[in-house]
Amino acid sequence: MGYSFFSLLKKDFTMMLSSKFLLLIVGSLILYSLYINLVYVRTDQAIYPVYLLDPAESIENISGQIIRVDNMEELQSHTSDGYAVGIDATGAAPKIIMTASGLDSTDHTRTAYALSLLSPGQSTPAEVIGQNSKEMKSRREITSEFLFFELAAVGFLGLASTLFEEKYMGVIRIHGVMPISKSLFIFSKLILFLLADLVFAFLLTVINLGLEAGFSVLPAILVQTVILSIIMALVGFFCAVWLPDFKQFSLLYIVFAIFITTPVFLVGQTSITWNWINYHPMYHLFMAIKNACFEMPVGEPVYYIICVVSIVVLFLVAHKTLTREMAKEG
């Protein structure tokens, strides 16, 4: 059995090489790392600019961050972008002038911030919690995002494309009349793609978080990589064997990438809150990777139980689909 399994691994590795999957992984790693180091950590949007119309200079001791304007036209022109905030102090009480951003919560924050600049001495400095600098926070955040995307979308696509190649060549059904178990056929692919994902996770983490921070989060990240990689590989395996051609798979992939992954990113990385996201399984997998990147506690025991049960169920489904594929006509 050992020799047979080694043969399967060797063949799958050859297929992996010929499908250029490893090249794609190396390319992704380089691209993500360049983006993180050269673009993302250097990008910082300025806080809302605040403009004040107070020709009589009736308000004293304002913050130095406030920009004075001379007339209403100028104030309205500066605040038309949905980001800047204007204060009209020509009346008895200051009035806020701004274009709505579309989110009430953001607009309240903008208003509170602008008003706080009118009396800067009264504000209490925020307490700094944790040891992450802004740059390290950005690095951890974007690393978790890229890692999740790579494991969920690219890994899924990689296994499926390799399997489609075997399906088109008709060789899958040959294994149905050979003294080799179907489980080994699946295991060999899972192990190879898992190893590729683990190497990717290791390099992405160490390159972008640095040696010290990287190694301290690696154990938790690798555990989450194992879980997500196996789940996605099994889903990719099932889809590639079940769907008749790559065109249909591509459509499913688009649905998966846009409609399933996007809400997870929106809730996980922005201030958007949707209660229903708790029922989205990918959200929990993403948050587990994010928490691992931030050295936060990752998942309750029930999370791991559900993951293991999901892997077992997906494996059985993949096994059954493979058996059906082997019985198909040429």
Binding site: K11, T14, M15, S18, E166, M169, G170, V171, R173, I174, V177, G330
Partner: peptide, 13 residues
């Protein structure tokens, strides 16, 4: 031993 109707083989090998 089974010979299938079509010669199923790994084309890249």
């Amino acid at each position: 031993g089974v010979l299938f109707e079509y010669p199923y083989l790994y084309a890249n090998l």
